[in-house]
Design a binder for these strands. Structure first.
Length: 489
DNA sequence: TACTGCGGGCCTG
DNA sequence: CAGGCCCGCAGTA
């Protein structure tokens, strides 16, 4: 499957019209009258260039799955945006399905600070913002330039962090929640009386599956849809238990997992099924109203926290050992990096460089973050960004962590039923990251491909969880990563 | 309330 | 001077 995905990516990249032409966002003259346009890429990664039609709505809005914030480049003709990274649980707790919390950093500084003061909806520990340092230690930057009938897009840098929840997913989730809130009571009563009758309706409501009214949507679907296929639970039948949970959770605010949240209906149509992952066998939340919110008044209203509701299980018990495989989800984003090189990209920025840098970036992030032990509510962004310039040798720090591969064992063995469930069905595979299918794939592949992958420069990170002693270590295999992001390249 | 784009301004290399 | 970043403002949803 990976092979296929990889091939698909390459093919996709090859089809990138923008990469076939020689241009730079700063060129005085852009290619005139482009004849072809690229389909919109929600998760561009690497040093890529695309040319979208000026009619492309998403391009017009300069949208991106990554949390990009406007950056002033003092050039009114070129819009520059820099990546904010991703917000994760400081304890790197594992969600019931084995995935990690990967929230979308709020774009607004103020909102982001507020966001970071909140606790992990899953384990209540602090949240942490992993800054993006994919561009020579600085955040990946995206440039947009409208020229004639084309919108030129250029990305610089390879994200060295997991994908955050996409904007579309966030919006879909929020809107779904609102809807649920509005209809919760009524539906509940009916459901009790006629559960079956409500099924379809519920599904549509929860997943907010809209009709594909726009062809272009397929592009995205393709991108993110992979995850569905890769996921352990796609095929898992929606159980009544789930629905019930879902409803309840929804009522609370949101029940989607951070990763599985359901995507924008339009965009991720295929994914909805994944939302069930958590609620699957393992997620049978015995208690829809988890203790998560007990001491968090007001949280229910915050859609950002709703993700975990479905999870409603008590994570605390096994959170400790789970730390071992923390960041596994990160891998999902790596693939893009790999795919980048060789895509016909101009060598100006050096794709090879990207590859070479990988080891450096990945490891570094975690280290700085944890070593600095930034306080939960600390201005992570600023702090981190400031630190980004400081090159830390992660190699030097060797916490008592296990290699990722080693961790797999423990994980599969000890985890609570929920966790086990997630991992067991498909065997070693299981850890999927919601954002994208590729996410977990790597994990699986890891053990198997460790030999080869390592050889190709994969790195092993050793991260020390702040204040926890335990370290998180995982080796990120650049090579593995490709399962799902065809869109990126 | 948050997202988004704009642009002034500061700092650093 | 370029690049990165902060900040406030304004329009929008």
């Amino acid at each position: 499957r990976q092979m296929r995905a990889d091939a698909a990516q390459q093919a996709d990249s090859a089809r990138s019209y923008g990469m076939q032409l020689n241009w730079d966002i700063n060129d005085p003259q852009m290619p005139q009258e482009p004849v072809f346009f690229d389909h919109f890429r929600e998760w561009p990664n690497g040093y890529v260039r695309f040319i979208y039609s000026s009619e492309e709505k998403k391009a017009q809005r300069h949208l991106s799955g990554w949390a990009m914030r406007n950056t002033n480049n003092h050039n009114g003709h070129i819009l520059k945006k820099s990546c904010l990274g991703v917000v994760v649980c400081a304890q790197a707790c594992t969600l019931p399905d084995g995935s990690r919390l990967q929230l979308r950093p709020a774009i607004c500084d103020k909102a982001r600070l507020k966001q970071q003061k909140k606790a992990c909806p899953n384990c209540h520990s602090a949240l942490e913002l992993i800054p993006c340092r994919g561009h020579s230690g600085y955040p990946v930057t995206n440039f947009w330039r409208l020229d004639g009938n084309a919108i030129f897009f250029q990305a610089k840098g390879t994200h060295d962090h997991p994908r955050p929840e996409s904007k579309s997913e966030t919006e879909a989730r929020r809107s779904a929640i609102k809807r649920q809130m509005a209809t919760f009571y009524q539906p509940q009563k009916k459901r009790i009386r006629e559960p079956e009758a409500e099924e379809d309706q519920d599904s549509s409501v929860h997943f907010n599956i809209p009709p594909l009214d726009h062809p272009e949507q397929f592009d995205i679907i393709t991108d993110t849809s992979f995850p569905v296929l890769e996921r352990p639970c796609p095929s898992f039948p929606v159980s009544d238990a789930y629905k019930a949970t879902c409803d309840l959770a929804t009522f609370q605010g949101d029940k989607m997992l951070p990763f599985q949240k359901y995507p924008n209906p339009r965009i991720y149509l295929p994914r909805p099924p994944c939302s069930y992952e958590l609620s699957g066998p393992g997620c049978i939340n015995s208690s829809p109203y988890p203790t998560l919110y007990k001491d968090s008044p007001g949280i229910p209203n915050d859609t950002d926290w709703l993700h975990l509701n479905p999870l409603q299980y008590n994570v605390s018990s096994y959170s400790s050992y789970e730390r071992n495989f923390d960041f596994t989800s990160k891998q999902h984003d790596w693939k893009p990096a790999l795919g980048i090189p060789g895509l016909g990209e101009r060598t100006d920025h050096g794709q090879l460089q990207t590859m070479a840098n990988f080891p450096y970036y990945n490891p570094e992030l975690p280290l700085n973050r944890y070593l600095t032990t930034a306080p939960p509510g600390a201005p992570a962004l600023q702090t981190v960004i400031t630190t980004t310039t400081t090159k830390v040798s992660y190699q030097a720090y060797q916490p008592p962590a296990l290699k990722y591969s080693d961790n797999i064992g423990p994980k599969a063995l000890s985890p609570p039923a929920t966790v086990t469930r997630a991992a067991s069905p498909l065997g070693p595979l299981p850890l999927k990251t919601p954002g994208d299918c590729q996410a977990i794939e790597p994990t699986l592949a890891f053990p198997q491909e460790s030999a080869s992958s390592r050889a190709d420069g994969s790195e092993t990170w050793e991260v020390c969880v702040s204040g926890l002693g335990p370290a998180i270590s995982y080796s990120d295999r650049v090579g593995l990563i490709f399962s799902c992001d065809s869109e990126d390249f």
